[in-house]
């Protein structure tokens, strides 16, 4: 057990957990931020995607001990009113089926668009291919990312 000070969504949190605890479970079980989802736990599906200093990262394989002073952003902190351009585009396109993968999809898309604000469809697909959607909403996700790029 060790004590960690974490900077998440602009707030400071103090948690007492084992060093190897993945950020995903710190968020869900210890801080109560459950928007970040568990699905595979082995960096294969993207459901657990968060931002670490603005970059998309799989929180399921990110030990809390490796975070240090890095700034973490989760889906809850992407915008204060749920009005980030990617969130707005997701609503506009009505992207979700079950919705379970979508927080991770949104986080991947938001980090990608920050780096590449005017992407081609191919670039969008390359960026989003790391996130699985078991319901098969891929066409809608493509459309929503392209729309988000325009909304900015």
């Amino acid at each position: 057990m060790a004590n960690y000070n974490l900077r998440i969504n602009g707030n400071d949190y103090n948690v007492e957990v084992e060093d190897d605890t993945p950020l995903l479970w710190v968020l869900r079980d210890h801080i109560g931020l459950v928007g970040t989802k568990y699905s595979c736990g082995i960096a294969q599906c993207g459901a657990c995607t968060v931002h670490v200093n603005g970059e998309a990262a799989f929180s399921c394989t990110l030990p809390v001990s490796s975070i240090g002073s890095d700034e973490i952003t989760t889906i809850e902190g992407l915008s204060s009113e749920g009005d980030h351009p990617v969130q707005k585009a997701w609503d506009e396109v009505d992207t979700a089926q079950c919705g379970y993968c979508q927080a991770g999809q949104i986080m991947t898309a938001a980090a990608f668009l920050r780096k590449n604000p005017k992407p081609t469809m191919e670039e969008i697909e390359n960026a989003m291919n790391r996130n699985l959607c078991r319901c098969g909403t891929y066409h809608k996700i493509r459309e929503a990312v392209a729309l988000a790029a325009k909304l900015k």
């Binding site: 928007g35 889906i75 809850e76 749920g82 997701w90 979700a96 979508q102």
Partner: peptide, 15 residues
């Protein structure tokens, strides 16, 4: 539109 869009896209506890 899906009535739970906002909740899903802002990470509210639903599942």
């Amino acid at each position: 539109k899906n009535v739970e869009n906002k909740a899903m896209f802002t990470g509210q506890p639903l599942y």
